[in-house]
């Protein structure tokens, strides 16, 4: 049932550019939202959805699908663009982001959007949900995997570490966390606001297998997802160093682009860069 055609690296990079363009257009139209953390996650998400996960856009509730949870829910424009591009819903819907009556809420809502596994947006909660899904898979003797994307600001939430402890305790080898480590949070740099470093050592001490990569290097991302699948007896986290606002020069590494939509002119400039 692996309907998704696995793409080669060149095609993946092409898809990522298209997704980034969607993100810019959606946010400009909506007039609000989070470009920085959407753009930093795009490459990790594109490889996951187009190359790795077992899923079927025509059957979003297919029982044996791999699951993806965007725990850093504010990055949803990137996820919505991928879901639309893959056929979970029409790409026309993308321009309704954040509008009254839209299936695309400001933060992910599982009741309105096909392909969203759980409502999120309040940080720190998705890893626990992923653990629950992983435990259900074990109980039902199913081989699907669960992926949870976290932000490096998000892991300041205590619940993340409750979940980290429990996933390790329950040997949830079918659970894979992906850390979009863009080094910025709303109020500034992670190291200034509340340092979550050293990140790999923390996860190792909680019993996780840690893979460190550059989150924009496609070979590394593909390797990491494949490696994670082979690890037995413990969960894996892919600590992916990323650039907030990746792909748009004036947004890159700029904290101000965490939660601000581009103007029409800024969007045009960004889209020129993403050609």
């Amino acid at each position: 049932m692996k309907d998704i055609q696995v793409l080669n690296i060149k095609s993946l990079e092409e898809r990522a550019k298209i997704i980034r363009r969607y993100v810019i257009k959606m946010l400009a139209k909506a007039g609000s939202g989070h470009p920085g953390g959407s753009l930093s996650a795009v490459d990790l998400l594109v490889v996951l959805f187009y190359n790795k996960m077992r899923h079927n856009p025509q059957q979003p509730k297919w029982q044996d699908r791999d699951r993806f949870i965007l725990s850093k829910g504010h990055g949803c424009p990137a996820l919505y663009a991928i879901l639309a591009d893959m056929g979970y819903f029409s790409v026309d819907k993308l321009e309704t982001l954040r509008q009254f009556g839209s299936i695309l809420q400001g933060h992910p809502c599982m009741k309105t959007t096909p392909g969203i596994e759980i409502s999120s947006g309040s940080l720190g909660q998705g890893l626990s949900v992923g653990l629950g899904i992983a435990l259900a898979a074990k109980l039902d003797k199913k081989d699907y995997r669960t992926y949870v994307m976290l932000g490096d600001g998000e892991i300041e939430e205590g619940q993340i570490w409750e979940a980290a402890m429990a996933a390790s305790h329950y040997k949830a080898e079918n659970l894979c966390a992906i850390l979009d480590q863009n080094e910025l949070q709303i109020d500034g740099f992670i190291h200034d606001v509340m340092s979550s470093h050293p990140i790999p050592a923390k996860w190792r001490s909680f019993g996780w297998h840690v893979i460190e990569i550059n989150g924009h290097n496609y070979k590394a991302i593909i390797y990491a997802y494949n490696e994670a699948e082979k690890i037995k007896g413990r969960p894996t986290i892919i600590v992916a160093k990323t650039v907030k606002g990746k792909g748009v020069s004036f947004m890159e590494n700029q904290v101000d682009w965490h939660g601000k939509a581009p103007t029409k002119e800024e969007a045009e400039k960004a889209l020129t860069e993403l050609k």
Binding site: S128, G132, Q159, M165
Partner: peptide, 27 residues
């Protein structure tokens, strides 16, 4: 097999239950 002691961590427990429920479990 169907009982999960989540330790002294109620927030994680609630959302683990939520995850189980998305897979058809009555948690």
């Amino acid at each position: 097999d169907r009982f999960f002691n989540m330790g002294v961590a109620e927030a994680n427990m609630m959302n683990t239950a939520a995850g189980l429920a998305t897979c058809g479990k009555i948690a």
